[in-house]
């Protein structure tokens, strides 16, 4: 199971959980899975999020492969200067 960590303000939409475990082999599958499990998160995920996979930041969440034991953090979409 992939471990997905939500940023604090998403917790209410995920029934108070900051950590979710889902079956997924890439980021897209992971986002679909958590959107399905917690419909409250779907609008946020649709707007676009950034992810960190095992410490590596990806500004646009795509189809990055995930390992069984990957740790993924979801963030609001990051912008730079």
């Amino acid at each position: 199971m992939v471990k997905v960590m939500l940023w604090g303000s998403l917790k209410p939409a995920a029934e108070g959980k900051a950590e979710i475990h889902v079956e997924a082999s890439n980021v897209k599958q992971m986002l679909d899975a958590i959107g399905k499990a917690h419909p409250g998160l779907a609008p946020v995920l649709e707007r676009g999020v950034s992810v960190a996979i095992d410490g590596q930041m990806h500004r646009v969440a795509g189809y990055e492969p995930l390992r069984e034991d990957s740790e993924v953090y979801i963030f609001p979409r990051l912008e730079g200067g």
Partner: peptide
């Protein structure tokens, strides 16, 4: 430092 959890979540490389 490397390997430590950052204040925003993920571990630092």
């Amino acid at each position: 430092r490397e390997g430590e959890k950052s204040s925003y979540g993920p571990k630092f490389r």
